[in-house]
Simulated assay, not measured.
Amino acid sequence: MAREVTDSDGITWSCIQAFAGLGKDAEKTEAARVDGSRNRFHVVCTPSGGAKSVRVELPGDWEKGLSDEALLRAIHEELARQP
């Protein structure tokens, strides 16, 4: 399930766990897990307006347990790391 958040620039980010479209079996879930981490997963966030998507590492409960502010902070921190 995708989660959407809108930042202060009016950009709506649609975020979904990596490999989520491939099914719910354990192998697909494991593919999204961050190496060496028990409860962190790769999440792909795609902005409205055609800008570049980013991949962030978030806790397993990111869909419901992570605030919008924390999700946007992770997105913008990743954007700042990119050339």
Rank of each mutant, 00 (worst) to 15 (best):
M1N: 05
M1G: 13
A2W: 01
A2L: 08
R3F: 08
R3I: 13
E4L: 10
V5F: 04
V5L: 11
D7V: 05
S8Q: 13
S8V: 04
I11C: 12
T12S: 07
T12C: 06
W13C: 03
S14W: 00
I16F: 13
I16H: 11
Q17A: 05
Q17K: 09
F19R: 08
A20Q: 08
G21L: 13
G21K: 02
G21Q: 09
G21Y: 09
G21I: 00
L22W: 08
L22G: 07
G23F: 07
G23V: 06
G23S: 05
K24V: 04
K24W: 04
D25G: 06
A26W: 05
E27K: 11
E27V: 07
E27L: 05
K28Y: 07
K28T: 04
K28R: 13
E30D: 14
A31Y: 10
A31P: 01
V34I: 14
V34Y: 01
D35C: 00
S37A: 15
R38N: 09
R38L: 11
N39K: 13
R40N: 10
H42S: 09
V43T: 08
V43P: 06
V43E: 02
V44C: 10
C45W: 01
C45H: 02
T46F: 01
T46A: 15
P47L: 07
G49M: 10
G49D: 14
G50P: 14
G50T: 03
G50Q: 09
A51M: 15
A51W: 11
K52P: 00
K52H: 14
S53E: 14
R55D: 14
V56Q: 06
V56Y: 07
E57V: 04
L58F: 03
L58A: 11
L58V: 12
P59Q: 04
P59C: 09
P59R: 12
P59M: 03
P59S: 06
G60D: 09
D61R: 09
W62A: 04
E63V: 04
K64R: 11
K64D: 13
G65E: 11
G65L: 05
S67Y: 04
D68A: 12
D68F: 03
E69Y: 02
A70W: 00
A70D: 14
A70F: 05
L71A: 07
L71Q: 03
L72E: 04
L72V: 00
L72F: 01
L72C: 08
A74F: 12
A74H: 10
I75F: 13
I75K: 08
I75Q: 05
E78I: 02
E78G: 01
L79E: 15
L79W: 02
L79A: 02
R81K: 15
R81I: 00
R81D: 08
R81V: 00
R81M: 11
P83A: 12
P83M: 02
